[in-house]
């Protein structure tokens, strides 16, 4: 039950993109098309779950026992960067079509705040091992959700009459604002 709550909280109530502003760069950068948004979301989720697992292990098995907490940020970002590289090579070996679909997005994931944010939040909230994994899954699901929603909206916006000054980034931000307001409706869903 706890785990489900962690998942739902990260995915919907405290959506990573819309409530914590994590992963905004790809959110604005690649959310122009529905298909690429979904691929990006999927690739990020994949890395997120693995990153949540590995960083938890590193923090609780290495950094804490040896009093090296001050290396937290350096080690986390290195883990994430090498993970992304690893995933890229792995996908390239295993599935060419998948690689072609995700390939160009993978390097972008390293600087996706959502991944490092996930690892940091999970330490800050003192999540256990399983909780961390579910937190990663939830955050990933929330990321996909936000990305796909905004991509869908943007595809429609292309056909709408938007004042020239607001085309592109400004209108995307305003749409995201309205989406964030809508997501506020979920708050209170999980609280007891």
């Amino acid at each position: 039950m706890e785990l489900v709550l962690v998942f739902l909280s990260a995915a919907i109530v405290n959506n990573f993109v819309l409530a914590y502003f994590l992963g905004i760069c790809p959110f604005i950068g690649v959310s122009g098309k529905l298909s690429s948004a979904f691929s990006m979301g999927l690739a990020s989720t994949f890395v997120m779950v693995i990153a949540a697992t590995v960083t938890w292990l590193i923090y609780h098995m290495i950094l804490v026992p040896f009093n090296l907490e001050f290396l937290q940020y350096v080690s986390f970002i290195l883990v994430i960067a090498s993970l992304v590289q690893f995933v890229e090579m792995f996908i390239k070996k295993v599935s060419q079509p998948l690689y072609r679909a995700l390939g160009i997005f993978l390097p972008l994931i390293t600087t996706n705040c959502a991944i490092l944010g996930l690892a940091l939040f999970s330490v800050l909230r003192e999540y256990g091992f399983l909780e961390s994994i579910f937190f990663g899954l939830g955050a990933g699901a929330g990321f996909i959700l936000a990305l796909v929603l905004i991509a869908g909206i943007r595809e429609e916006l292309d056909l709408a009459e938007v004042p020239a000054q607001f085309k592109g980034v400004p209108i995307t931000l305003i749409a995201a604002g309205i989406l964030a307001m809508a997501f506020m409706g979920f708050s209170g869903l999980i609280s007891n």
Partner: peptide, 25 residues
């Protein structure tokens, strides 16, 4: 209150962007 909530951040930045584009244009 909306201004200090997440939604307010998106809206304010979006409007500022628009304003800047307006001036530039």
């Amino acid at each position: 209150v909306i201004m200090i909530l997440p939604a307010g951040a998106f809206l304010t930045l979006g409007l500022l962007f628009g304003l800047l584009n307006f001036v530039e244009l």
